Amino acid sequence: MRLPTMSGHFLLAPIPESSSDYPLPKDIKLAVLGAGRVGKSAMIVRFLTKRFIGDYEPNTGKLYSRLVFVEGDQLSLQIQDTPGSVQAQDSLSQAVDSLSKCVQWADGFLLVYSITDYNSYQSIRPLYQQVRKVHPDSKVPVIIVANKGDLLHARQVQTHDGMQLANELGSLFLEISTSENYEDVCDVFQHLCKEVSKLHSLSGERRRASIIPRPRSPNMQDLKRRFKQALSSKVKAPSTVG
């Protein structure tokens, strides 16, 4: 399943220096979760710089910030890379719990596994469950990404397995190759940005709709003036003779 290309609506630019000419941008906070050596850092750097940095994760735990434009709206994008400690089943729950603060912080999530590592695929479900545990009443968007799609000779996870898991969890799914296809990497982040932005807009509309205008307080001076006028008119009114 391939997400629709939206490259024409998304532009990356350096964050400008503080200036009164720039309106404060909306914030979009994304977290990239997954086991070690699945290519999380490589995906982030490829998206932001179009460069492929190799099959290792030198920037684990780093927070990336960029200014982006989503269909004409200026957004401040932050992407949190996370430790790749979610691997072995015996330490899985502990590793997932350690990500709670990051999960609570983020507005949208990429859950990444490698098609060459079945254990990384198995880590996706508990990661997804952790996201929904922290955001129980939220529709926070989640995309499941199968990375290293070019290494077909070493495949351990079939495409239909990823699609089936995504369908069970109610999530979007995309299989990509960070090293070979920049457009697919870009599509993943762009689509997630758009979904988070859409969610923010809906939340803002709900908040505005829930605000009932406060009734204006009566002007006491005006009431006193009207009361005096009413009394005065009664005193001046001529009496009728029967």
Rank of each mutant, 00 (worst) to 15 (best):
S7K: 13
G8H: 07
F10V: 14
L11K: 13
L12T: 04
A13C: 08
S20T: 14
K29A: 10
R37G: 15
V38R: 06
A42K: 08
R46A: 06
L48P: 01
K50H: 09
K50F: 05
R51V: 03
G54P: 01
D55T: 12
T60V: 13
K62M: 12
L63W: 00
S65I: 07
F69A: 13
V70Q: 10
Q78S: 13
D81N: 04
Q89E: 12
S91R: 15
S91L: 14
L92A: 15
S93V: 13
Q94R: 14
S98Y: 06
S98R: 13
G108Y: 05
F109H: 05
V112R: 00
S114L: 05
S114F: 05
I115P: 00
Y121S: 14
Q122P: 00
L127C: 03
Y128I: 05
R132W: 03
H135L: 08
K148A: 07
K148H: 12
H153S: 12
V157G: 09
V157K: 02
G162R: 01
M163S: 11
L174R: 12
V185R: 03
L192M: 03
V196F: 08
S197W: 10
E205T: 05
R206P: 03
R207I: 03
Q221E: 09
K224Y: 13
Q229S: 11
V235K: 15
A237T: 09
P238M: 03
P238L: 06
S239Y: 09
G242H: 06
